[in-house]
Amino acid sequence: MVNLTDELSIAIAELDGDKVMALVKERLQAGVKPLEIVKKLQDGMTRVGELFETGEFFLSELINCGEIMKGAMAELEPILAGGGQGYRGNIVIGTVKGDIHDLGKNIVVMLLKGTGYNVIDLGVDVAPERFIEAVKENNAPLLALSVLLTSCLDSMKEAVTKVKESGLDVKVLIGGPIIDDNFREYCGADFSSNIASEGVKIAEKVFA
């Protein structure tokens, strides 16, 4: 588990939204580089992800943290101008066609963003073609798919198959509560998990 020493990282891990905003503004005024501030926020988020995994934090804490992060990023993003810089890489993500469940996927997005990736979130009910386009456009080395409905597992398989057939050089990670190794094989995906933070670990591997 990460050991937090910075006040801002601790504030976000303690879900103290007011303090986070105050510290972000204070540091910007003091001339701290925006990217450095983002890094501290990310450390705090990583901690929150770990607490969720160990069962100390629940969805309510996670969502609250995500909103605090959003608020802080709204302050920082305009100054981070030019985008792109400082990102560890592009990841395309979405819930497969026919399925509109997105709470789990949103957590994965939050954690990936929190660890410094540029996440292109296509939302829910995403057709295979849109995944392919987005991977191409963003030159993304990793595509992550989420599914909850057992009736949409074939839709997941179709997405993986089409992406693989497109010949793009992209690794595919599939996730959701009902996903296991058997199903990864069935779909022909590269990685699978039913834990959000595993997604981050898999990304680390892909981007290593």
Partner: peptide, 10 residues
């Protein structure tokens, strides 16, 4: 909605 209610709790 979920995000709404979760923030309301706080």
């Amino acid at each position: 909605g979920l995000t709404g209610i979760m923030l309301d709790l706080y």
